[in-house]
Design a protein around this nucleic acid. Structure first.
Lengths: 190, 190
DNA sequence: GATCATTCTTAAGATATCTTAATTTTTACC
DNA sequence: GGTAAAAATTAAGATATCTTAAGAATGATC
């Protein structure tokens, strides 16, 4: 487990083993069974989660009572409700395990401690956050340019890791399509 | 001008005057006349721009030849094409002054130098990037939950600074509405 | 102040996507 | 292996939004 996080961290900034050990000590490993909530609506998100293995979704319930998925995350991704975690305010969304998921929990408190002690970590998260921002901007661009059908083929082709581990109605939700319409799109040849 | 950037920087991290001076030296002030391009499609974005005064838009031309605006920025905002700037790859979008605009240009090269010399800056941009990410996620949520009409009233009410300085067809583009349809929405009382 | 360019509006017909509701298929569990 | 729960499909009617094309209004320039 420590190997996995070490490999990940060193992709961004070089940490020596002592540093990794010290950081690792502040992380708590936890298992969330399928359908378990890592975070519920209206509660403050105290952790940023690093997924060692599994799938997690972030979603909210809309005015009509339907779930709308805004983010998925799998192995080697960080997931949290950003606004809630960063500003320590109540979350408008839920974080839930889509399959049995093992995570490393990094509390806001420990993170701030670590930032003080290891400025390198400031750099790492600056880089990680930049990547998240770019990914997010890219997602917006895709939704802006593509119709439902294209979004679906794009998703299935470009993110097979997700497409295979997540039920179709969740993909529909993430792609901002009703499950019924996605079903119709799939029927149209190809 | 230096006062303005000092105030801005100190909102995130405390810098002393010597540090501000040193950072300020690496910034180049520039004026872009209305309709001038700060960045053109297919070129690498070499700078991150801090807007001292003015309005800038980020947009691309879609398959049908229509301009699609993805971001606006006004006084005291950073604007760049993130993916192009961070990874120094050709940009898929244009950056253009909507009105006469004064900016401070921070080159990728100078930024990397400054990161090495002033780790505090690493922290500042980590925080700035987090805020950008949160703003972006929030924007996505809004587009997900609101119909065109609501997006428009939301925009006009919540961002009057933009609404007043930008022509209506640009607002339409930013809100992902055709100008014709926005016109119709406005006619519907209120 | 006239003229050209830019921006905004109007309206009719087209289309992508949703809603609802019922049915079928697949999966999970005792 | 049978039954209940979850997921996926089908179809008909409704609706938000777009497209096209033309005209009106506003603003900028000599």
């Amino acid at each position: 487990m420590k190997e996995q996080i070490k490999t990940y961290f060193n992709r961004y900034v070089e940490f020596d083993d002592a540093e990794i050990d010290a950081i690792y000590e502040k992380l708590e490993e936890k298992i969330f069974k399928k359908k378990t909530f890592l975070l519920e609506e209206n509660t403050i998100c105290r952790h940023n989660y690093f997924i060692l293995k599994g799938v997690v979704r972030l979603f909210y319930i809309d005015a009509k009572g339907h779930e709308k998925i805004t983010q998925f995350a799998i192995d080697n991704w960080w997931i949290t409700h950003m606004e809630s975690f960063i500003n320590q305010i109540p979350s408008s969304q839920y974080l839930q395990a889509v399959e049995d998921t093992t995570v490393l929990c990094l509390s806001k408190y420990n993170l701030e401690l670590l930032y003080k002690e290891y400025p390198k970590l400031e750099r790492m998260f600056r880089l990680v956050t930049e990547n998240m921002l770019i990914a997010n901007l890219r997602k917006s661009d895709i939704y802006l340019q593509m119709k439902s059908k294209e979004r679906y083929t794009f998703f299935v082709e470009k993110l097979p890791d997700f497409a295979q581990r997540v039920p179709q109605y969740m993909i529909a939700s993430y792609l901002e399509i009703t499950p019924e319409y996605l079903s119709e799109l799939r029927r149209q040849r190809n």
